[in-house]
Design a protein around this nucleic acid. Structure first.
Length: 866
RNA sequence: GCGGCCAUGGCGGAAUUGGUAGACGCGCUAGCUUGAGGUGCUAGUCCUGCAAGGGGUGGAGGUUCGAGUCCUCUUGGCCGCACCA
């Protein structure tokens, strides 16, 4: 019999000493630097790169711990793994810091990067730091400028006017996140909408493909695919021209309407056009009341409060149009506040009976309604609509030649007829697929972003900066002592000769949306050393798509959709041979923590609270004053609620392995994980336990009792771990490791031999290596194994050890469990039945009855039905 | 309003995808050890019952030999989009 060495004689594992040593050893061996020429099968694992806000937070720790498990595991499995890291370094916080602290955004950003790089390195992540990039580096953004020009050349970039948020006090454009409750974040003044000429990426050119290709992204969460599908918003309908009944100067001869419900055309009562519709503009010149209404709509339009109340308002233009299925039937045309110019044609036909908005509108203006679709379970003669529109399918009524058809049949009948009819030389209607997705406006009136490489010339218009002149660098010296974009005030920077005619011209002073920077960084990682071009298509095609991308759900739509667009645009311009950037996507949950408040209602950080559980109730007290602290709800860690735990503090007191292990334990990775002090202690205890067990293994002197059971336990854990880590079920991987640790403990008590102990301990160490890599290296050394565990191939398991010779089958009688019967593993159904019926407990449960039916599920269960 | 997800002990969660509900961890209880700033070990911990047994996965039905898992209804919570024609 041997016992694990007691904790008094064995020195505790010292993470503080050991972790930096192993990090140094890995760096010396350049284990994680990836060679593009490595011919083994590739695996690209990537976590969403961080914004250099100052310090890493627990969300980063969780994200990167997960990615590192995958990277280390895949490396051990023999893949050529690419696991890079960089910085999403442009953005508004740098400008805010510059304003508040009188620093330069560049200095602030690079100082943060240095701090955060050190923090990430202290986590022991297996990253290829030789490929590090920062998006604010001219060596990065010059290629982005190059691609902007290439996209422009391919017609994937356009320029037109769009609304921006304007702060009338600070005289500056505001980003959406700087508008709080409709007011400027600094001035507090109500924000106005202003029209500016801006640059757009034509993401809508790819709407159909972006939509269709979602079906192929099988390793994306269904939730994210659904969100993207809804965002792209594909609908199939009919674009119908309604001829004007009376000619009016400047209005044209027809109004085009898009509808997904042409089947309800006989229920039409009116036409409604958007306030921004050209017809409204044409009419309002001679009609001050209409002009006033249009202005009112524009003011209300973006005021979110107005949308909530959603009162339907309209203005009768006096114009009438002919019904396309019956020219003798005319309909009034309204300008209505609920019609959007950005969607469809900016005009709708109103069918009050079958659309709630149209019904609200018709009821308000006394336009009536005609039900034309009757639900199958309703009586057609008595079917009326009052306050609630019916938008389902049914049988056509009140619709002349359509009566009796289903809605689907009526859709086809109307579409076919109107497509064949001609008005002024063109078909009256055409089938159309419509998308909700709008083009991506990328112009930002900001300093700290990638300059848009365009020069505006009086004579030549917007002229691309010649590729040889790239990058257009941001000016080094910048001041934020006045509101607005400093680039606009920097005349020396702004004023340049026109590349086309040589006349004095001015630079574009807008910079690109920071989402552009993050739309292609994963492609740049495949060859970040290239000086003269954004990518090497061979390298891109070698590494992309990213096999496993890991990040927060908050990027489910914008970042992931923009990246998908960018790959397609890069494909169109020859910079990539693939169209989908991310083959596998995983969205991890947040790190949450209890909140604490003192008697005055002020937030209290966790470090200042101690707890007592006397009389069964858990109460909080201030560590210094002992004043009672109220324990509040569990919420996302945030500075404002002070419920944050600094990763540096955890790493300093427990080590990176403890923090990583805790982040991977318990909660499934896609769900939120609750950070608790007890949980961290548990993880820290386990670190010491592994250390003791491994040391016990090398000094074991048992004679081999329990060796067989130990081997089985080790190989079972190995098999189960492998299956779960492939599916990113890290919480289950952790459970398998604990189970093996328990088995090791039992085996040493039972007298396991040193050989069996070493083998099982070796497997345990390899299992923890992706999760607690430093501890694993120390243990590997104790076991006397060669090299670094980070270089060791993943062990194979012996399938023969996974199956038991006998199996304890639960026996149910009428679905209730009554007994366990041990049978040989390969016994056939008849043999099992015989054994079961002979069992004493089973016979007692049967009370002499004979089963009517016997269900034997081999290896699982037996059910007797009496 | 539309769309989606979730609900299991005191807590986080597991359940081989329709086959022994509660793995593993945290917490708690008792004992032993250690010894004073986060130790280790043993036993126990869904409810009820001395026990045999009985009950149990938000609630009510259903399908099935068998349901945490599938179907219908319902309650509660979370998330996304939001006047999209």
């Amino acid at each position: 019999m041997t016992h694990p060495p007691s904790h008094q004689t064995l020195e505790r594992y010292n993470a503080k000493d050991s972790e930096p040593r192993w990090q140094e050893a890995w760096a010396q061996a350049r284990l994680f630097e990836t060679d593009n020429a490595d011919a083994r099968p590739k695996y690209y694992v990537l976590e969403m790169f961080p914004y250099p806000s100052g310090r890493i937070h627990m969300g980063h720790v969780r994200n990167y711990a997960m990615g590192d498990v995958v990277a280390r595991y895949k490396r051990a499995k023999g893949f050529a793994v690419l696991h890079p890291m960089g910085w999403d370094a442009f953005g508004l916080p740098a400008e805010n810091a510059a304003i508040e602290r009188k620093t330069n955004p560049r200095d602030w950003t690079y100082a943060n990067i240095a701090t955060m790089r050190g923090q990430l390195q202290s986590m022991g992540l297996s990253l290829d730091w030789s490929r590090e990039i920062a998006t604010c580096d001219p060596d990065y953004y010059k290629h982005q400028q190059r691609m902007f020009l290439d996209f422009l050349g391919k017609g994937l970039v356009t320029r037109r006017t769009a609304k921006v948020n304007w702060d009338p006090v600070d005289h500056t454009v505001l980003a959406n996140e700087q508008v709080i409750d409709g007011r400027g974040w600094r001035s507090g003044a109500p924000v106005e909408q202003r029209e500016l000429t801006q640059w757009f990426f034509k993401i809508s050119d790819f709407a159909q493909d972006l939509y269709d290709a979602l079906d192929g992204l099988e390793r994306w969460p269904e939730k994210v695919r659904l969100m993207q599908r809804n965002w792209i918003g594909r609908s199939q309908g009919l674009q119908v021209r309604f001829a004007l009944a009376t000619a009016v100067e400047g209005v044209g001869e027809a109004i085009e309407v898009y509808t997904t419900r042409p089947d309800t055309l006989f229920g039409a009562r009116f036409l409604a056009i958007a306030a921004d519709h050209p017809v409204a503009a044409a009419l309002s010149g001679a009609n001050p009341a209409l002009q006033a209404f249009v202005d009112e709509c524009r003011r209300m339009g973006t005021a979110q409060a107005a949308i909530d109340t959603a009162e339907k308002l309209g203005f009768d233009t006096g114009l009438t149009v002919r019904h396309p299925l019956d020219p003798s039937w005319t309909l009034p045309v309204y300008v209505a506040n609920f019609v959007l110019m950005e969607y469809g044609t900016g005009a709708v036909f109103g069918c009050p009976a079958h659309d709630q908005r149209d019904l609200d509108f018709a009821n308000k203006y006394g336009l009536g309604n005609t039900p034309v679709v009757c639900p199958e379970d309703q009586d057609q003669d008595s079917f009326v609509i009052t306050d609630t529109a019916f938008d389902g399918d049914g049988r056509m009524i009140n619709s002349r030649y359509l009566d009796g058809m289903t809605t689907g049949e009526a859709f086809e009948a109307v579409a076919n007829r109107l497509e064949a009819e001609v008005l002024s030389g063109r078909p009256v209607a055409a089938r159309k697929v419509q998308f909700r997705l709008r083009d991506w406006g990328v112009s930002r009136q900001r300093y700290w972003g990638c300059p848009i490489p365009i020069i505006h010339c009086e004579a030549c218009g917007p002229v691309p900066v010649p590729v040889a002149d790239l990058p257009v660098r941001l000016p080094e010296e910048v001041s934020f002592d006045q509101p607005g974009n400093p680039l606009e005030r920097d005349h020396a920077w702004r004023t340049v000769p026109c590349p086309s005619c040589g006349a004095a011209a001015r630079r574009e002073t807008d910079t690109m949306d920071t989402f552009v920077d993050s739309s292609w960084y994963y492609a740049r990682f495949t060859a970040p050393w290239l000086a003269d071009r954004p990518t090497d298509p061979a390298a891109v095609n070698r590494w992309l798509a990213v096999d496993q991308y890991i990040g927060g759900i908050e990027h489910a739509i914008l970042h992931l959709l923009y990246a998908r667009f960018f790959m397609r645009a890069m494909q169109a311009t020859g910079w990539s041979g693939v169209s989908e950037p991310f083959a596998g996507l995983f969205t991890q949950g947040m790190v949450v923590h209890e909140t604490y408040k003192d008697a005055a209602g002020a937030w209290v950080p966790p470090a200042e609270v101690r707890f007592s559980t006397e009389d069964g109730e858990r109460r909080g007290f201030h560590v210094k004053t002992s004043a009672p602290i109220a324990i509040g709800p569990i919420e996302k860690m945030s500075k404002s609620k002070k419920n944050v735990v600094d990763p540096d503090d955890i790493i300093a007191s427990f080590g990176a392995d403890t923090a990583r292990w805790f982040m991977l334990s318990d909660s499934p990775p896609e769900r939120d994980v609750i950070w608790t002090e007890e949980g961290v202690q548990g993880a820290a205890r386990f670190v010491q336990r592994v250390w003791r067990l491994v040391n016990a293994a090398v000094s074991a002197t048992g004679s081999g009792g329990g060796d067989a059971a130990l081997r089985k336990a080790a190989h079972k854990a190995l098999a189960a771990f492998g299956e779960d880590v492939e599916r990113l079920r890290f919480n289950r991987c952790v459970a398998h490791v604990y189970t093996l640790a328990n088995a090791l403990e039992d085996a040493f008590r039972g007298g396991a031999s040193a050989a069996a102990g070493r083998e099982a301990a070796g497997i345990l160490v390899q299992l923890i290596a992706p999760m607690m890599p430093h501890l694993a290296e120390s243990c590997w050394a104790v076991l006397g194994r060669d090299g670094l565990v980070a270089q060791a191939p993943w062990p194979g398991f012996d399938p023969a050890l996974l199956v038991e010779d006998t199996v304890a089958l639960p026996v149910q009688v009428n679905g209730k469990k009554r007994a366990d019967v041990t049978v040989p593993r390969d016994a056939d159904a008849a043999a099992v039945e015989a054994l079961v019926l002979a069992d004493e407990a089973v016979r007692r449960a049967l009370e002499g009855r004979t089963p009517r039916k016997v269900i034997v599920v081999p290896g699982r269960i037996v059910n007797l039905v009496v």
